[in-house]
Computed example of a mutant assay.
Amino acid sequence: METEVRAALSRRQALVFMGSLAAVPLAAQAAPQGTEMQLLGAWQQADGSYRVGVLAAQAGGPSPLRARHVLEVPTRAHGLAQLPDGSMLATARRPGDWLVRWHPGQPAAKAQWHWVDATRSFNGHVLASADGRHLYTTETDADTGASLVAKRDARSLETEDEWATHGIDAHELIWAPAARGEKPTLIVANGGVPTAPETGRVKRNLHTMDSSLVRLNGESGELQGQWHLPDPRLSLRHLAWNAERTVLGIALQAEHDEAADKAAAPILALFDGQALRLCPAGQSMAGYGGSIASTAEGWAVSCPRSQGVATFTPEGQWRGLVGLEEVCALAVGSGRLWAAGVSHSLENARSPTPLAHAHAKELAGARMDNHWIKFG
């Protein structure tokens, strides 16, 4: 029988829970014929418990989206990453206190957990170095409210160094392309939304918002550049490169006081290495961009409050909205955009005729979190 856990677990209860946690067993399923798309994902089950793991569907199906390998986690997960050895990483949604490394499909390999103390909180995202030796997590100092990047040992998950992000509410981070011989460079989105440790995710003093995009030396953390949008009530959140890795797309979330301003706010900005540029949508997106992805056809931003995927050309011109109920996670596999909904997911979601994959029984009523990562 599956172990159940609720989001209201105390830290002590969660630690006891982790001592006996095992991968959730699933009924054996025959692998679909043909090419299979495998995705790392995070989701909430219909019973309120939380999962991370590998999801799979046969490309070109239709075939159901199934859960191949699953790990139960104590609270809602958010950011995901994969290491060269095939292990996956997941971290808690902000303000979070856990990070886990797990080998899907290897029953003998126990999940490795790391908990931060009360002086830090995870901000929901984790990134691996190219060689898999180090991890980078966005975090917040509970005493000062300042955000930082923690450089961690991938084996122990312990912090080796910390770098300021020169802002607050740091969210996703991504590697910038580097020429041979150049130092690695990190780009971090400072969401800029003020919160407090005692009130968790409650937003406060929004008139003081200070969102920015920063570039840091990937070895020393030295600040190499910082950019702001003209509208201080737009929060820079999630990041994706175009196929050529020459333009960075940023999904935006609006925090305006007036409903009309929020409704009219853009949900996409583009960064060419020199400046940020806003890309207006052709209709109201309720001021909320979730995940972001790029294909040869252009940009896609999931908009769960608008029940669809907003699509743009590679240059940022509006294309239209692809409807999908409670759409959240996006991923690109074999050049095709995959989008997660609540009852089914779409393959080739930018197409005029996307292919729907119904969710299998074990995912009935599940709600996917913001991110998918192509696995393998």
Rank of each mutant, 00 (worst) to 15 (best):
R6K: 06
A7E: 10
S10Y: 13
R11S: 14
A14P: 05
L15G: 02
G19N: 14
L26C: 02
A28I: 08
Q29D: 09
Q29Y: 08
Q29I: 07
Q38A: 00
L39I: 02
S49Y: 06
Q58K: 13
A59P: 10
G60Y: 06
G60S: 01
P64N: 07
R68Q: 15
D85V: 00
S87H: 06
L89P: 00
R94F: 08
W98K: 01
W98R: 02
L99E: 03
L99D: 02
R101W: 06
H103A: 09
P107R: 09
A109S: 14
W115L: 09
W115Q: 03
H125E: 04
L127S: 04
L127Y: 11
H134Y: 06
L135H: 08
Y136C: 00
T138D: 10
E139M: 01
R155S: 10
R155F: 01
L157E: 08
D161K: 04
T165C: 06
I168L: 05
A170M: 10
H171I: 07
L173Y: 12
L173V: 08
I174W: 09
R180E: 15
G181R: 00
G181L: 04
G200N: 13
K203E: 13
K203W: 15
D210Q: 11
V214I: 14
R215A: 14
G218Q: 04
P232H: 09
R233P: 07
L236N: 04
H238K: 05
L239A: 01
N242S: 05
L248D: 05
G249H: 04
I250E: 04
E255R: 03
E258S: 08
A259V: 03
A259H: 03
D261N: 10
K262R: 15
K262D: 15
I267F: 12
L268M: 09
G273D: 10
L276K: 07
L278C: 04
A281E: 11
I292D: 01
A293H: 03
S294V: 05
A300M: 03
R305N: 15
V309A: 04
V309K: 12
T311M: 13
P314V: 05
G320A: 12
V322I: 12
V327S: 02
C328V: 10
V332L: 07
G335L: 00
A339Q: 06
V342L: 12
S345H: 15
E347H: 03
S351G: 09
P354R: 01
A358V: 14
K361G: 01
E362R: 13
G365A: 09
R367G: 12
H371K: 10
W372I: 05
I373V: 14
G376I: 11
